Amino acid sequence: MARTEDTPTGSPRGGARRAAKPKRSLRPQVVALGVAAFVALIGWGVLVWVAIHFGRSARGGDSEKWAYLAAASIGAVLCLFLSLWLFTVVLRRVGILEDNRRPAHPHRDEGPAAHPHRHEGPAAHPHRDDRPPSSHRH
């Protein structure tokens, strides 16, 4: 691009600049979520180990251990679910994962101009033939 008195050199946008990147800081809430996720993961490991122990005891003839095995198994599943959920929240807060979830109320922020014809019924489907059955071609 040639330089003239009125236009700056460089890109066609002239002197367009990007904003300064925000400094990364240690956020206590994100650290707490990460620690909670790690604790839940350790809890999962312990409960799996306990469930294996109770399973061996139950198969060896100690029938009351079946209830402990079931409880430890359910607890392990819950701990793993909690851990994965918390790790996902941490990754979203840090910015590694994008938050693609839809808002709970998608039309709450839109004004009345977004839906100008609310009083009208649903629009006819463009591919549907709304003629009475007698006028259909065969």
Rank of each mutant, 00 (worst) to 15 (best):
F81A: 09
L80Y: 12
R93K: 15
G60M: 03
P133R: 14
P116I: 00
D6I: 07
T7A: 11
S57T: 09
H117N: 11
W49I: 07
P103E: 12
H107M: 13
H107N: 06
A76L: 06
E5D: 14
E120A: 10
N100K: 05
D109A: 12
V50Y: 05
S57F: 07
H117P: 00
A113L: 13
H115G: 01
R118S: 04
W49D: 03
A16L: 15
G34S: 06
S73N: 08
Q29M: 11
I42K: 05
V50K: 09
E110A: 12
P28I: 13
V46G: 05
A123V: 06
D109Y: 04
R92S: 03
D62W: 04
R13N: 12
M1E: 15
G61I: 02
R27Y: 11
V90I: 02
D62M: 03
A32Q: 12
F54C: 07
G55C: 11
P22S: 13
V30Y: 15
W66H: 10
V30T: 15
G61S: 00
E64W: 06
R118M: 06
A114K: 02
V31P: 01
R13I: 02
A71T: 07
G75M: 04
P28F: 08
R17W: 06
A70T: 09
V30S: 11
A113D: 12
P103Q: 02
R118C: 05
T4P: 01
P126C: 06
P133M: 11
T7P: 00
G55W: 08
G34T: 09
R131V: 04
S83H: 11
L69K: 02
G75R: 01
P122C: 01
A123L: 08
V39D: 07
P103M: 04
G121N: 07
V94W: 05
L69C: 07
L41Y: 14
H105V: 04
E98S: 12
A37W: 01
K65T: 11
P8Y: 13
H136M: 10
V46K: 01
I52A: 12
R92L: 08
R102I: 00
A104G: 04
E120D: 10
D109K: 04
A19T: 06
W44T: 02
K65I: 00
V35D: 04
G111I: 06
S83N: 00
R92N: 08
A37G: 04
H136Q: 09
S135P: 00
A70Q: 11
A72V: 05
A2I: 01
R92M: 13
R93S: 02
P12G: 06
A16Q: 15
P116K: 03
I96M: 08
P132E: 13
T7Q: 14
